[in-house]
């Protein structure tokens, strides 16, 4: 028996909108730790890892570990039927081939349940080792989204370079080139507006903008984004989900031939 009651149901709606472009089908894993997901895109270039910790739910019952295969577009269709202020409860019985999403309006005058068919998915789980990153950049998520969108109108790839001076996003295409430098800026009114760079050593890596733009669908989940870079590793683009967990995107770099 599984029963997860999330008062801030809009979080789940936003999570689905953040990942459904990247991944079609995925297994949601439920354990005492929380509600989680790890899935790669079909070309094995990008990976999304989601964790919603059990403590973040108003009620969390998971009698035994359960993996539920879901089509994310279908799940998003159902969650779009929940109001932004609704409380969402996810329910499943052991051995069942369906999951139920229950939506309650804040004043309890409307209760809806949507039952969705589960699917068997052969998922490839990857072990992601803890890593020391050469550079970690934290910046406003909307600013990062704007940069990725702007650069993708010029080129297909972005070079992200971190130096003492700041973080530089560069692209080149048929019509020309573009460079956007964001300097460390801690003297802002609100901490979420700051750009903070922790650098052990300079790093420069090239990534496909198509994937970066897809990651920025998670922007509504968090005011800030953290970009962790190491010269020999995939980049991690992390959006923290307030008090509950995170959504992390990993992207393999472009490599010199």
């Amino acid at each position: 028996m599984l029963e997860l009651r999330l008062v801030q149901g809009s979080l789940l709606k936003k999570v689905l909108e953040a990942i459904r472009e990247l991944v079609n089908d995925a297994n949601f894993d439920c354990s005492a730790t929380g509600f989680s997901l790890q899935a790669m895109d079909s070309s094995h270039v990008a990976l999304v890892a989601l964790l919603l910790r059990s403590e973040g739910f108003e009620h969390y019952r998971c009698d035994r570990n359960l993996s539920m295969g879901m089509n994310l577009n279908n799940m998003a269709k159902m969650l779009r039927c929940a109001g932004n202020d609704d409380i969402i409860t996810i329910k499943a019985d052991d051995g069942s081939d369906t999951v139920t999403f229950m939506f309650e309006s804040p004043n309890q005058d409307k209760i809806a349940d949507f039952e969705m068919k589960l699917m068997d998915i052969d998922s490839e789980h990857l072990g992601i080792p803890d890593a020391e990153y050469h550079a970690i950049v934290r910046m406003p998520s909307a600013e990062f989204a704007r940069i990725c969108k702007d650069l993708s109108s010029i080129g297909d790839t972005v070079v992200i370079s971190v130096t003492k001076e700041g973080v530089k996003f560069s692209t080149a295409g048929d019509i020309g080139t573009a460079n956007i430098v964001c300097r460390q800026n801690k003297t802002v009114d609100k901490p979420e507006e700051a750009t903070v760079i922790e650098m052990q050593e300079p790093v420069s890596l090239t990534f496909a903008l198509r994937y970066m733009n897809s990651f920025t669908k998670a922007t509504p989940l968090s005011e800030t984004v953290t970009i962790s870079l190491s010269s020999e590793l995939p980049v991690v683009v992390e959006y923290k989900i307030a008090d509950m967990g995170y959504i992390r995107f990993y992207l393999a770099p472009k490599i010199e031939e």
Binding site: V45, H125, G127
Partner: peptide, 14 residues
């Protein structure tokens, strides 16, 4: 020239 890296080259399947 660059080519797209693959995550399986960095992380192991478990």
């Amino acid at each position: 020239d660059t080519k797209q890296g693959n995550l399986l080259a960095f992380f192991k399947k478990i």
